[in-house]
Design a protein around this nucleic acid. Structure first.
Length: 592
RNA sequence: GGUCUAGUAGCUCAGCUGGAUAGAGCAACGGCCUUCUAAGCCGUAGGUCUCAGGUUCGAAUCCUGACUAGAUCACCA
């Protein structure tokens, strides 16, 4: 963070104690609230070098660094903590530099990174779990890109397999040729209903079979509906005309529905992959894998890989009937992507229920190509659960993505009307802002929690619009915009340059200090694939600003140097809020 | 049973590459709108950081073990 301080501390250790500092890492942190200082160096680790008490070591270093480093105005020592206070000029410099630093962008992208996320099945509509996936994938993409990399966002649409065959079968049996149009339904919802219908009848059949003496497992295997669904899958794979026709038609309905949902969520992709066109690639790989002796074939023709020596299990790659499984397809897709784009990294945003799958995938890829395997990363995130437990599409206990969004919009509208600040705007403008707020609330709510943690969502408690929320941050942005508008109205000339002689308050220094941390937070967040870090950072910044705002007037400030400074500070904070929130996929309004 | 992940205020979550007195929000209570947007600000109350050991000058943070919850170990995806 503060490279110079680290450098001078190391110099100090070398000159005063004749120590080797090559392998020593110096920890510089922001000084704790309520203690005089801007930065703190923890000197406990150096008492071994100094052979002195922590206090004396800190004093030695304090004297040394104060002498060498003119940006330090004073220091104090509390126990083993050396607190450094920087000069006002230093902080003003930092603020002025913020504007410059942003202008020269990163020269060339550091890495090419492919991110796969969303990856829906085409048999049912998107729900809250998908929303977390999409928001996470989208935000991580934006952040990694902002950290100076080339990002390719891809979506692997799982458009084939037993699940869609179930919907197809149900529609062929009971659909009576109805369509989303004829029933006036969104396409994905329409198809999803048949999936549920399949499951309902399937369960009945299982119950009957169990009644007649079969075990549950046997019943599941032998239920006529399941056998028929399997038959459709085989027909699909052998290219049966009628099956393919129905498949294409039903998928197209689903895509129309998805498109609408993605659009509302503000999610876009650079490339779509369809499993129906990548799974054959996997089949090819199975063949070469067999030739190379990576895979083995059982007497019933099924193909396996034995990973028991690696602490994993035996995993199937081709069923005895020759059809492919998930792993086969993922394998094929992975190689296809490496060959096509040669990314330095390939990140899969997939729920933690598939941790094992990706462990196995990586191992298998490793058998083919060690280098590819090392570039694969699984960004695993926790499931979204309801207070009652897991969401289950088949049982209809899901929070539907579209429903949730429109509910948020309704709530935002209500609150906005009550507050009445944008009631006079044209409807179009108003709707845009309301949608911004509604989605801001939803997105921030989901993104602020650590991806790897499981989260519970209570549909009965609507998502807040006050406190640590998206709208609070959006509101602060609008507030700053309002101040800047008023400055203009009052004909206050804002020249964008802050004088070195401006006297700063502690809370102002704190705000500048926070602003300077922004770039580092992005890098860190990109490295950790954790958008939550940025959410927390912005929240802290915004909270501090609001406190400052309430205690000190900006436009009424008589001292023009301070006035200029505060305008610049506010503007920079607004910019940081805006760009930071954009990295989370959240837009911020200028009025609300 | 094996493996993985998590356990912090009543609730939802920060803090976890070890550092000073563990922080927010929601909910509760009390204040602040003739002053730049009250979706805001200030204050009160709320804690054995699941438990037990260990490493260390120092542990919510690292290690080990228990307990609790979830995931996973399919010719599902």
């Amino acid at each position: 963070m503060e490279k110079n301080i680290i450098k001078y501390i190391k110099d100090g250790l070398e000159t005063i104690y004749k120590a080797e500092t090559e392998n020593i890492s110096v920890a510089v942190e922001r000084t704790r609230e309520g203690i005089d200082g801007d930065f703190t160096v923890v000197v406990f680790p150096y008492t071994k070098l100094s052979k002195k008490k922590p206090e004396d070591t800190a004093k030695d270093l304090g004297v040394f660094i104060k002498q060498r480093f003119e940006d330090i105005s004073s220091y104090n020592v509390i126990k083993g903590f050396l607190n450094l206070k920087m000069t006002q000029e230093y902080w003003i410099q930092r603020l002025n530099n913020l504007v410059k630093e942003k202008s020269h962008k990163n020269d060339s992208p550091a890495q090419r990174i492919m991110i796969e996320f969303s990856s829906p099945n085409t048999n049912k509509p998107l729900h809250l779990g998908h929303i977390r996936n999409n928001l996470l994938g989208d935000a991580v993409s934006r952040i990694i890109s902002a950290a100076g990399n080339e990002v390719i966002k891809v979506n692997l649409i799982n458009d084939r397999g037993i699940h869609i065959c179930k919907s197809m079968l149900a529609w062929m049996k009971w659909g009576k040729n109805s369509t989303p149009k004829s029933t006036n339904q969104k396409g994905d919802k329409f198809v999803g209903d048949y999936y549920v219908l399949f499951d309902k009848n399937y369960k009945e059949q299982i119950a009957e079979l169990v009644e007649s003496g079969l075990t549950e497992d046997q019943a599941k295997e032998q239920a006529p509906l399941m056998l028929q669904a399997r038959e459709i899958l085989q027909k699909w794979e052998s290219g049966d005309h009628e099956v393919r026709r129905v498949w294409e038609m039903m998928n197209s309905w689903v895509y129309e529905g998805f498109e609408e949902t993605y659009k509302n969520l503000g999610i876009e992709f650079d490339k779509l992959y369809y499993e129906s066109s990548t799974y054959l690639h996997g089949k090819e790989l199975v063949k070469t894998g067999l030739e190379k002796g990576i895979f083995t074939q059982d007497p019933d023709n099924s193909v396996w890989i034995d990973l028991t020596n690696e602490g994993l299990d035996r995993k199937i790659l081709l069923r005895s009937d020759g059809t492919t499984v998930y792993m086969t397809q993922d394998l094929g897709t992975a190689f296809q992507r490496f060959e096509e784009y040669n990314p330095d990294k390939m990140i899969y945003v997939v729920g933690n229920e598939q941790d094992y799958h990706f462990k196995v995938l990586k191992k298998i890829v490793e058998k083919f190509d060690k280098d590819y395997a090392s570039r694969i990363e699984h960004l695993s995130y926790g499931m979204v659960e309801l207070p009652e437990g897991k969401m289950k599409s088949r049982e209809g206990t899901v929070v539907d993505a579209d429903d949730l969004m429109s509910e948020m919009i309704e709530n935002a509208k209500k609150i906005s009307q009550e507050n009445g600040k944008i009631n006079d705007l044209p409807d179009e403008e108003k709707d845009k802002i309301i949608k911004m707020i509604a989605l801001g609330a939803l997105k921030y709510y989901i993104i602020k929690v650590d991806p790897k943690k499981q989260m519970t969502f209570n549909p009965n408690e609507s998502i807040d619009f006050t406190g640590n929320t998206g709208p609070f941050i959006q509101y602060t942005h609008a507030r700053i915009c309002s101040i800047l508008r008023n400055a203009e109205k009052q004909k206050i000339k804002f020249n964008g340059k802050v004088s070195d002689e401006t006297r700063l308050l502690d809370c102002e220094v704190k705000l500048i200090s926070s602003l300077t941390e922004y770039e580092g937070i992005i890098i860190e967040s990109a490295k950790k694939h954790d958008p939550g870090m940025i959410a927390n950072y912005i929240y802290d910044l915004v909270k501090d600003f609001n406190q400052f705002y309430h205690e000190h007037s900006i436009l009424k400030e008589k001292d023009t140097k301070i006035l200029q400074f505060r305008l610049q500070l506010s503007l920079q904070i607004a910019n940081t809020i805006k760009t930071g929130m954009n990295l989370l996929g959240i837009e911020v309004p200028e009025v609300m």
